[in-house]
Design a binder for these strands. Sequence first.
DNA 1: CCTTGTCCCGACCGATCGTTCGGTTACTCT
DNA 2: AGAGTAACCGAACGATCGGTCGGGACAAGG
Lengths: 196, 196
Amino acid sequence: MTTAKRDTYTPETLLSVAVQVFNDRGYDGTSMEHLSRAAGISKSSIYHHVAGKEELLRRAVSRALDGLFAILDEEHARVGRAVERLEYVVRRMVEVLTSELPYVTLLLRVRGNTDTERWALERRRDFDHRVAELLKAAAADGDVRGDVEVRLATRLVFGMINSLVEWYRPDARGMGAREVADAVVVLVFGGLRRES
Amino acid sequence: MTTAKRDTYTPETLLSVAVQVFNDRGYDGTSMEHLSRAAGISKSSIYHHVAGKEELLRRAVSRALDGLFAILDEEHARVGRAVERLEYVVRRMVEVLTSELPYVTLLLRVRGNTDTERWALERRRDFDHRVAELLKAAAADGDVRGDVEVRLATRLVFGMINSLVEWYRPDARGMGAREVADAVVVLVFGGLRRES
DNA sequence: CCTTGTCCCGACCGATCGTTCGGTTACTCT
DNA sequence: AGAGTAACCGAACGATCGGTCGGGACAAGG
């Protein structure tokens, strides 16, 4: 390879360290001093790789948002019966949340204090609306119960899926992403009650 | 009344202002200067009513935790078939979340940076375990599906309920707490799919 | 009138915030 | 060997952090 493997930081490798610290302490609760200690380089050295703290946040939430929006472009999310497209999107959301866990975690905790955070919140709303339309279509097809308002149901389902970031950890012996995705799909569509 | 109505702050009224700001900006993102501006008094005056920033946090999360734990002491949560007690607890959780919304919101966002936050996280775990045992009992009774692990199902259901704090707002013309509680119970136990 | 206590204030404290700057090391290329 | 540059560092910047301090305004009780 022309570019030999570096033992120094790149913006990407530094990002992976920073996102971990952000998720541990919260973005506002993390100082550049914390980051420098976690990365093993001095505080000022960080600025050789990235423009500042907020750029790290922007890179992280962008990565998470790109992963989520990519789902909607996949074939199974675009063609077919609405309820089946919805099930596919729900399953893929769980997979993206688990595979990009630290980045999505950070995205879901953004509060809106800076321009970057407000931009992230806006894109999140866009994504939510796209999925809500899918659910509305499935309700129009009669494949989804009509006694719960679409907007409310969307929010509750998103709440269940997004809660993954609060407890899922890719442990070696723990449950896998597939297992979690199966459980989410079963509960979202079938509910908790024993099937008769 | 012996105690005439005050037009000045008490620790409680100051708390209600502080919790709003905490939820807007995040606890770490809120400075005492922010609080003083929102309360309309000087920064130093705040210390006349409370010991400091962390005491405001402790009071807030205590109030939320007390509300949640009180559910488990109610009669319908203690006697009866496990699945019915579970349904009652789920419904009451939604009611407490909506009635004590700002306090529970703050509780669900603590990260564990200080002793107060770690104590709050510990009590939250206690509560979760209590509800998980209820779900386990319902599964043992055969009233709840056995093909999804109890621990996993508990976390997902908690995720759906707790997500209320991210979007529920007690608007005048918006949906009421009862309406939300009904929807949560229907979705948790019955699922999204149209009932045949 | 004077005391007492509540409520509040401006000024200030040391510490820490995110960021900048001048300079040093160490590796690459010619 | 010498030049160029990527990677890094310690020291310091102004700003802001949570919190302290001495005292002023004001109402109640004597």
